[in-house]
Simulated scan of single mutants.
Amino acid sequence: MKYQPPYTITPEILNRVALISEVIGRLTVLTDQARALRLRRINRIRTIHGSLAIEGNTLSESQITAILDGKRVIAPPREVQEVKNALAAYDRFDTWRPEAETDLLEAHRILMSGLIDEAGRYRHGGVGVMAGQQLIHMAPPAERVSQLMGDLFGWLAVANAHPLIAGSVFHYEFEFIHPFADGNGRMGRLWQSLILARWNPLFANIPVESLIFEHQTEYYAALQESTRQTDSAPFIAFMLRMILVTVTTSTPEVAPEVTPEVRLLSVLTSEMTRQQLKKALALKDDEHFRKAYLLPALEAGLVEMTIPDKPRSSKQKYRLTDKGRRVMAQHGGG
């Protein structure tokens, strides 16, 4: 009897599949080859930054760009190696087949080369998923991994589910099995992108990873809830929401310039507090908001404090500067 992952197709999931398909159809018409090549480099950097940042890598998009350009970057050697490996893996992206287990092992070997001893091989020991000091998932025993992965690839090869659903199901099942000693998160996200790119090549250039990074607490919560329910529907719904937001905001015309600070400007309609800004951006993590959004906007002179001499004041608010207004005018008002 062939393996069938447990998942329920809810109305919410069907609606998101329809909306994503509609937006992707419009983007396919709008994106010419020259623009696609230009976006590919920019969005690949954003994708690599998002995926590695979820795993704790601290390098910025500008540092990743420098590494891509062959420049020297002063940073922890392991983090530089992670970026080089990710760049090498994405260079091979178009050659891999989603249903080929050997391709997944090859991708892991490239992605984790020089980082772990078992690069390109399934783990030989137990492994768990940690959230800080808390164990949130204990993966199946190592002796079951090969069979479980074989079953999963067997299902994917014949699955008749829409790729948006099949990709999310594979991603969840992969994370549940946690087949490698390390690198499972980035591999799961990479393989979902590969499944989607075989449906529509635009997904090779759409940085869903960046949005997952901004909502990583929800990402882990969706994984946990799916495990609790023995049904990957919560994770499917979460991933489709991330994909829908990404494809809706990453239009060919604006994708190169929509940095986090520009997104901040787009919601800053008046004088607003940090909490109001975070809510408008649908962000929960205060430290990520501060480092990725607020500080870059302040340092670039796009935003200013209403009480600059008391930066920690409980009454502190933020507003656009003249420079910030000019930037938003260039973006058509946001």
Rank of each mutant, 00 (worst) to 15 (best):
M112L: 12
L111H: 03
F174C: 05
P179H: 00
G126P: 08
A100I: 08
L152D: 08
D103A: 03
M187L: 11
M112V: 01
L190T: 15
L152G: 08
E101K: 12
L152T: 10
G132P: 07
A166S: 15
V158W: 04
V127A: 14
R186T: 04
I116M: 04
H171N: 08
I177H: 00
V145N: 06
T102L: 12
G126M: 12
H171E: 12
L156I: 06
E106K: 14
V127D: 05
E101W: 02
Y122K: 09
S146P: 08
A100F: 05
L104A: 14
F176A: 14
L104C: 06
G126A: 14
A159C: 13
A131P: 11
H108R: 01
A119M: 05
L156V: 06
H108I: 02
H124D: 10
D117F: 00
L164K: 08
A139I: 07
A100H: 10
F174M: 07
S113I: 13
D103N: 07
V158G: 03
L111M: 14
N160G: 15
A161S: 14
L115F: 04
S168L: 02
D117A: 07
V169K: 08
G150M: 02
E99R: 03
V169N: 10
R144I: 13
W191S: 07
A139R: 06
E173W: 04
G167R: 09
V127C: 07
G167P: 04
H162R: 13
F180S: 03
H162I: 12
D117T: 13
T95H: 10
R121H: 13
E143Q: 14
R121K: 13
L135R: 11
L135E: 13
P98A: 11
I136G: 07
Q147V: 15
V145K: 06
G126T: 15
A157E: 15
R109S: 00
H137L: 08
D182S: 11
V158L: 08
G185Y: 11
F176W: 11
P141M: 00
L190R: 05
G183Q: 00
A161M: 09
D103T: 03
P140C: 01
P140S: 08
R97C: 03
L111K: 06
V169I: 11
F153N: 09
E173P: 06
R97W: 02
V145C: 04
F176R: 15
E175A: 09
W96P: 13
V158Y: 05
A107R: 07
F180N: 08
L115R: 05
F174G: 08
Y122V: 07
A181I: 13
H108F: 06
A142P: 11
L104D: 10
A119I: 05
L156H: 04
Y122M: 07
I165V: 15
G125Y: 00
R97E: 11
M187Q: 09
P163M: 10
V129Q: 10
Q134F: 03
I110Y: 03
M149Y: 09
G114A: 01
V129K: 04
Q147N: 06
M149V: 15
E175F: 01
H124F: 00
R189P: 10
P141I: 02
Q147K: 11
L152M: 04
A107F: 12
E143D: 12
